[in-house]
């Protein structure tokens, strides 16, 4: 659904006292904020809690937002700090998590889809599985770059890092992700045989 107002217009409405405009602003960003939170927590319930907290925090500090960066970049920096605080609190061991619970259960809906969709969904399941096996920082960089369509500078702003650090992190994250995808696919092929 295309919103008729831009981020800036909606922000101005909210700052003018129109709370309902915040629901529209949230609709524009909630899917990505939730996806990003999920990359850190690997758990839907926790990710939803973090995403909700982020939107409430963003609302409270909306009057401190200056238009020097994109609203999405500012929002993702809130997601990053909130998720990091959450992880520190929970002392989450990302390696011990069962990734199966996180992935969408597309296998159960296979009969409703055509061959191309099945292939696409299967690919996505493998890639999501591989991303979930990455460290939270790597997964966040990959998600921000590919799904959030953020530039290296914007990712740097959101994560509080230098552009060169982000560049190196992105290279490494891609390399690790490639390895994970290859491992998963290799494992799946072996299982099929």
């Amino acid at each position: 659904m295309q919103n008729k107002y831009s981020d800036t217009e909606l922000i101005n409405k909210v700052l003018g006292g129109d709370k309902a405009a915040y629901a529209d602003l949230m609709k524009l960003h909630q899917r990505f904020v939730f996806t990003l939170a999920l990359r850190f927590t690997k758990n839907r319930e926790d990710a939803e809690e973090i995403a909700q907290d982020c939107f409430v925090k963003a609302y409270r500090s909306l009057n401190t937002f200056r238009n020097t960066s994109k609203f999405s970049t500012w929002l993702y920096s809130i997601v990053y700090t909130t998720a990091m605080t959450f992880l520190r609190k929970k002392r989450l061991d990302v390696q011990s998590l069962d990734a199966e619970g996180v992935l969408p259960k597309v296998e159960n809906r296979v009969s409703d889809l055509n061959a191309d969709e099945v292939e696409h969904k299967s690919k996505m399941v493998f890639v999501n599985k591989a991303i979930d096996q990455l460290l939270p920082d790597d997964a966040a960089v990959i998600t921000l770059f590919y799904q959030g369509e953020q530039s290296l500078e914007e990712i740097g702003q959101a994560l509080g890092m230098e552009v060169n650090t982000v560049k190196v992190k992105l290279h490494r994250a891609r390399h690790r992700l490639k390895e994970k995808i290859e491992n998963i696919l290799h494992h799946e092929v072996r299982e099929l045989l």
């Binding site: 909630q30 899917r31 909700q52 969408p104 992700l177």
Partner: peptide, 20 residues
């Protein structure tokens, strides 16, 4: 192209309502 094609996750139906 493979990584760019990943769909974003959808939060629960009550997400917006809870935040609002």
């Amino acid at each position: 192209s493979l990584v760019s094609a990943i769909d974003q996750e959808e939060p629960s139906m009550g997400f917006s309502r809870n935040v609002m």
